[in-house]
Design a protein around this nucleic acid. Structure first.
Lengths: 108, 108
DNA sequence: ATAGATAATCGCAATAGTACGATTAATAAA
DNA sequence: TTTATTAATCGTACTATTGCGATTATCTAT
């Protein structure tokens, strides 16, 4: 994306944006849905599930790790990825609160 | 972002990603928070609230409109923007369902 | 030690997103 | 009609993201 002036916004707004980025790409949505549903660690078979190359999947996993919403357990040559419960709860609370800010318009 | 292969994912996954993009930038979070809180239409004073130029704010408003989460009432020379209740509810339902997919890990 | 399996990383190409000054469009007010 | 006000759009510059082939790193099994 171009230059985002994060320093001009509150830490809360920046964190919301970061968490939202975890869901802002179909591939990452697919990864998170898969990890959430299978209730168990998934290793490289994410590559089989997704229509993307191993390199690209690895990149998305890295981004999700950076955000913190998933964590990886290395047990070479495999890596076991799963949802980070704490951050998932953070996302739940964050989006819950944000979306609760609005009920209905008194104007338009 | 580079080339997102949307055609390789489900319509649901793509819509989730699109809705998430509404929240995936601090400026758009700020805009949505402001529109949600003030409970009334805001016109150009969004530009005063945000640390960005008029052109940039207008661009973010356009993107939010494209996603559908806000709507604009033109009453020149002003434009009155407000939350689109239907899409806001869609976001609530969508993220609610998505975040409810996961409870806790049975592995890691 | 060698071979196999898995996943991270590098390097590259191409598109998307951010930001802003300047201009344009559209209307109200004078 | 002229002027002021407001917001969209254009053009440009630059950064971020996406994607993939190829390579590398790491560990297991033989």
């Amino acid at each position: 994306m171009g230059v985002t002036k994060t320093e001009l916004f509150t830490a809360e707004q920046s964190r919301i944006a970061e968490l939202a980025k975890a869901f802002a790409h179909p591939a990452r949505v697919a990864i998170l849905q898969h990890l959430a549903k299978t209730q168990s660690c998934i290793c490289g078979d994410l590559v089989d599930v997704l229509p993307l190359s191993q390199a690209t999947v690895s990149q998305h996993l890295k981004e999700l790790s950076r955000i913190g919403i998933i964590k990886g357990n290395v047990q070479p040559p495999r890596v076991c990825y799963c949802i980070n419960e704490a951050v998932w709860e953070e996302a739940k609370a964050t989006f819950g609160a944000l979306l609760a800010l609005f009920e209905q318009n008194t104007c338009c």
